[in-house]
Design a protein around this nucleic acid. Structure first.
Lengths: 131, 131
DNA sequence: CCGTATCCAAATAGATACTG
DNA sequence: CAGTATCTATTTGGATACGG
């Protein structure tokens, strides 16, 4: 139950309408969405496969994130009217346009991580010298 | 006061260490960081200029975000020992490596927004036809 | 199998008064 | 000027029992 008129919600809307980058983050940011999208880049996947392949995610959160991705037209939900029920998720064409961007994000991330690691090690060296 | 051992914090750490994209998000994601970085892409800026140019941000949040960016080696804080005090913020060289990525994110965001707009309008057309 | 519903824990955001 | 401290509001995340 989200208050639509909280300062918080208003700020979010304003920023997203002004800044495309903020919009992008609100669409694919968050803790779990990148993982979900990565899974689906491989192809269609069933609910349980997703849950299995994303360790630590709870059912509630998985469903919430999938619904948001659906609303943002990035993911499609296909229901097979069978018993036992079967549901598959797959990226829409719009969803697939994220591939390059994700690649970029991932590369920058590992570059940054390496940089941070070096920086930490240098600091430890200095401390060791002093001690 | 953040509990370091909460399931939440652990999940975050694990994900960031596995997935570079998640790492990138944790570094430049969040509501305000893109805006701050955009401001600093223009050049150095003082605390109050930042606050003025980012409408809606509170002091507390601005400082928190700046400190995180500092710890992630993206922003540098320069203190001039004067009275009245003067502090300037600027991007580090590492911070400037984000430029291309941000450009990418921004372009994808506006593309996605256009797509969503068209989709909404189509839905309204259908509703209008029915009514 | 594929989820909802519920309840609680934790994190984040905001306003604002105060300080060196 | 450039923050910190404090208090509260709001959102997000997690575990898990249950339902179609």
């Amino acid at each position: 139950m989200r208050k639509e008129n909280s300062t918080n919600a208003i700020n979010e809307q304003i920023l997203n309408s002004i800044c495309s980058t903020a919009h992008t983050f609100s669409v694919i940011g968050g803790r779990w969405k990148p993982s979900i999208i990565y899974q689906l880049l491989e192809g269609k996947m069933r609910y349980h496969e997703l849950k299995k392949n994303i360790p630590g995610i709870s059912e509630r959160v998985l469903v919430l994130q999938l619904r948001e991705l659906e609303n943002d037209l990035l993911v499609e939900r296909i229901i097979y009217p069978e018993v036992p029920p079967r549901v598959e998720y797959q990226l829409t064409p719009l969803g697939k346009t994220m591939t390059d961007m994700l690649q970029h994000l991932s590369e920058w991330g590992s570059m940054h991580r390496r940089h941070m690691k070096v920086h930490r090690e240098e600091k430890e060296m200095v401390l060791a010298d002093k001690g």
